[in-house]
Simulated scan of single mutants.
Amino acid sequence: MDLIQQGLEAMKQNKLDEAAAKFNQFVEENPEDPVGYINFGNLLIHIKEFDRATRFFNKALSLDESLPTAHYGLGNVYFEQEDYAEATQQYQKAIKEGLDEADVYLMLGMSLMNQEQPKLALPYLQRASELDSDDVEIQFQYGLSLAYANLIEEAFKQFNHVLSLDENHSDAHYNLGVTFLYKEQPHEALKHFDRALDIQPDHLLAGNGKKQVEELLHNQ
């Protein structure tokens, strides 16, 4: 097992100091290989040393500016710092350079959602959902983008799909409740708000939705 693999294994086991030592040794022995800088950069994101991570990804790109994983890593740095416009640019570059994985489409979609551009986010989140149909978070984010784009029937189906993967997903129950309100089925909406609160008693949005529906039904 080479140093990079040893470092990745150490990261999986949360042995971060050991991982850092392996990546550092690789960089020292292979200073012209960008792979070491990328993996070290990913570790630095994990421990929230964003300035150092940026330097490592930029060093990788100075060795090979077409590396999609370096652009993806840099995008993650900006995303973690809530600089969604810069994150968007880096994720787009990663895709342009050939990265075709669910995670990059997810992160690009979420960057656009955070810039209140759901219609632009939609195709990227759809692509992510196609690439990983069993990832609950990806499927949920795709559902959100459909809802924000006012594609209510499609969002309804998507949130049901999320619940088929995880029946205890409180946010999916809440959002399914909202789609039932759009469909003018308040009793069904109330069931899902209640279910969200059963799973997560401090779910403020579900609590507020439940209160509003109960007032609506009381006044009918």
Rank of each mutant, 00 (worst) to 15 (best):
L74I: 02
L74V: 03
G75Q: 14
V77F: 04
Y78Q: 04
Y78W: 15
F79E: 06
F79A: 12
E80M: 07
E80K: 06
E80A: 13
Q81T: 15
Q81S: 09
Q81E: 15
E82Y: 12
E82T: 13
E82N: 13
D83L: 08
D83E: 14
Y84T: 04
Y84K: 05
A85S: 15
A85I: 13
A85V: 11
E86P: 03
A87V: 00
A87Q: 00
T88P: 01
T88K: 05
T88C: 08
Q89H: 14
Q89D: 12
Q89N: 15
Q90H: 14
Q90N: 11
Y91K: 06
Y91P: 11
Y91H: 09
Q92K: 15
K93Y: 10
K93C: 03
K93H: 05
A94T: 00
A94P: 12
A94C: 04
I95L: 07
I95K: 11
I95S: 11
K96C: 08
K96N: 15
E97S: 13
E97I: 04
G98E: 14
G98H: 12
G98M: 13
L99W: 02
D100V: 01
D100N: 10
D100Q: 13
E101N: 14
E101K: 08
A102D: 15
A102Y: 07
D103S: 13
V104W: 00
V104Y: 09
L106Q: 11
L106K: 08
L106E: 09
L106F: 12
M107N: 14
G109W: 06
G109N: 10
G109T: 09
M110A: 05
M110W: 07
S111L: 00
L112Y: 00
L112Q: 11
L112S: 07
M113I: 02
M113K: 12
N114S: 06
Q115F: 05
E116T: 15
Q117D: 14
P118L: 01
